[in-house]
Nucleic acid binder design. Structure first.
Length: 204
DNA sequence: TAGGCCATCTGGTCCT
DNA sequence: AGGACCAGATGGCCTA
C-alpha cells in the first residue's frame, strides 16, 4: 500500500503536509477535502491571517509530521531509528512508517486532529469578528483572546448602561469622562481597558 | 531570559 | 460509533 502526501499549502511547499493512506478510508478523504476547502476560504475571513505570511498560521512552523513526532502522547520512536531524524525526508518516511504501524488508530486520530483544528479555526474567526466590534486604539496591536473577551464584557456593560440611561451615547460618555467616572465607579465597564479607549470611539 | 500568547496534539467525556 | 467539546500538555514565537 502506498502512502500519499497531502500538501495543504497552495504554493506546493510541505509546510502542512499530512501522511495518510489513500485507499484506506474514503470517508476520511472527504473530510480532509472539506477541511482543505474550509482552510482556503477561512484565510479570507481574518484580517490578521495573511499578515506577512503565505500561511493561514503565520506563527506555526510545525508540520503534521513534526507534530506527530513531537506530540506528548505520540508513540515512542522505535529503537535505532532516531539517528536519521535530522533529515527531513527521513522524518516523513519515519512518520509514515509509524502511521502504518497501527493504521486504524492513526487515521482516526489524524482525522480527529483535523476536526479539532477546524473547530479552533472557527473559534478564532469568531474572535476576529469580535475584535472588530470592540473599541481599540488606532495604533493598538491585536488584542489577545482573553483581552478581547474582557473588553467585550465591559463594552457590552457600557452599552447597556447607555441604553438604560436613555441619553445620547456621546454625551453620556463625555459626561462620564468629565466627572472622572465618579458616578460610575462600580460599573462593570469602568475598567482601565475600556475607559482609555472610549475617547477613540466614533459615536456618530 | 522569563513570561505571555498561541497553535496543535491528545485523551476523556458527552451528545446525536 | 462517530463527532463535538473540553482541558491539559507541549513547544514555538515574541516582547519587556
Amino acid at each position: 500500500m502506498e502512502d500519499v502526501l497531502f500538501d495543504l499549502d497552495q504554493d506546493g511547499t510541505t509546510d502542512y503536509a499530512f501522511w495518510g493512506q489513500m485507499d484506506q478510508n474514503i470517508q476520511f478523504q472527504s473530510q480532509l477535502d472539506n477541511f482543505l476547502l474550509d482552510y482556503n476560504t477561512a484565510g479570507q475571513l481574518s484580517p490578521w491571517s495573511n499578515l506577512g505570511s503565505q500561511s493561514m498560521f503565520p506563527d506555526a512552523q510545525l508540520t503534521f509530521t513534526d507534530l506527530d513526532l513531537q506530540s506528548p502522547g505520540a508513540d515512542a520512536c522505535a529503537d535505532g531509528e532516531s539517528s536519521s531524524m535530522d533529515d527531513p525526508l527521513e522524518v516523513t518516511k519515519h512518520s509514515a512508517r509509524r502511521l502504518s504501524a497501527n493504521p486504524p488508530y492513526k487515521v482516526q486520530r489524524h482525522a480527529a486532529n483535523i476536526r479539532e483544528r477546524k473547530r479552533m479555526l472557527s473559534i478564532n474567526s469568531a474572535f476576529e469578528e469580535l475584535r472588530c466590534h470592540v473599541p481599540t486604539f488606532p495604533y493598538e496591536k491585536r488584542l489577545s483572546k482573553i483581552d478581547t473577551l474582557r473588553l467585550a464584557i465591559a463594552y457590552i456593560a457600557l452599552l447597556r448602561e447607555i441604553l438604560m440611561s436613555g441619553c445620547d451615547p456621546k454625551s453620556y460618555v463625555d459626561d462620564c469622562m468629565k466627572s472622572g467616572y465618579k458616578n460610575h465607579t462600580n460599573a462593570i465597564w469602568n475598567t482601565s481597558d475600556l475607559t482609555a479607549r472610549l475617547s477613540w470611539i466614533k459615536w456618530d
